[in-house]
């Protein structure tokens, strides 16, 4: 039984859903269009643009490079972030909130500034490979997500649980692995997902660090768009959407989306 108020709410919700989904639907639709540019209405159905992805080495290489950078940077941020959070939430050090702010500070700096600063110091100054610069940049991008999400997870974990483990004969180090990590697993996986997706999609930081030997996928797509305005871009966008979607489904299948959001 819908009251009139509920009907209005439902309508508003549907309108917003359409506004959110429409661009995605258009991208999917245009990726199958036979026309040579991204346009509507569609003239015919083809899978050529998907085939064309495979003939673009920039996309293939970019995808692999993006994957590498996203995974390495996310894992690095997880290791540093989880240890930092454990220290911040469990030790008796002073000025905890100052440290907390320090670890979250990358969010305050515009990504483009981080990118430029890294370019100046790491690439130009230290002559390090572009890959190292990218890893550092994406690590900074990821770290605040880990700090935020894992802190939330740690705060929900009663600290007496660790003490109970110690008293049961488990050393502090072992307790971290046997008791703490399994209980903040959900927030760690959530943090990894956020890191991975943000790193994978990032342009502002990566913008400064690419070259003939290494270009990340978003950058490759931008480069391609500058020269060709054809539905290949739609096609690769669809591939990326499916890729992210499959990732989410796999996570849901193995740990359950309920746990990801903190419920049991």
């Amino acid at each position: 039984m819908l009251t009139s108020k509920n009907k209005v709410l439902t309508c508003i919700a549907i309108i917003f859903l359409i506004l959110l989904m429409l661009p995605l639907v258009l991208v999917v639709v245009t990726s199958f269009n036979t026309a040579n540019s991204i346009s509507l209405p569609i003239q015919g159905f083809t899978l050529n643009w998907y085939k064309n992805i495979l003939s673009q080495p920039d996309f293939i290489d970019g995808f692999i490079a993006s994957l590498e950078v996203a995974i390495i940077a996310s894992l690095l941020a997880l290791v540093v972030g989880v240890l930092a959070v454990y220290g911040l939430t469990r030790s008796n050090i002073h000025h905890t909130s100052a440290f907390q702010s320090f670890f979250l500070s990358p969010t305050l700096i515009p990504e483009i500034v981080i990118g430029f600063a890294l370019y100046q110091s790491v690439i130009v100054g230290l002559h390090l490979p572009v890959f190292i610069g990218l890893i550092i940049g994406h690590f900074l991008l990821c770290l605040p997500y880990v700090i935020r999400l894992v802190t939330a997870g740690m705060l929900m974990l009663d600290r007496h649980i660790e003490e109970a483990a110690w008293i049961s004969g488990c050393s502090a180090k072992k307790t971290f692995f046997l008791v703490v990590l399994p209980n903040i697993k959900a927030s760690i996986i959530a943090a990894f997902m956020m890191c991975f997706i943000n790193s994978f999609n990032n342009i502002p930081i990566s913008l400064f660090m690419n070259g003939p030997e290494l270009t990340l996928l978003p950058q490759a797509i931008m480069n391609y768009l500058q020269n060709n305005y054809d539905p290949t871009v739609s096609a690769i966008s669809v591939v990326l959407m499916v890729f992210t979607g499959v990732l989410m489904i796999l996570v849901e299948k193995f740990i359950g989306v309920n746990e990801l959001t903190g419920g049991k």
Partner: peptide, 20 residues
């Protein structure tokens, strides 16, 4: 002697069971 080598048992107000 560190906690984990004292061989004591302890019951907490919050029970502190291992949730996992």
């Amino acid at each position: 002697v560190p906690v984990h080598k004292r061989n004591f048992g302890m019951v907490f107000q919050s029970y502190a069971l291992f949730p996992h």
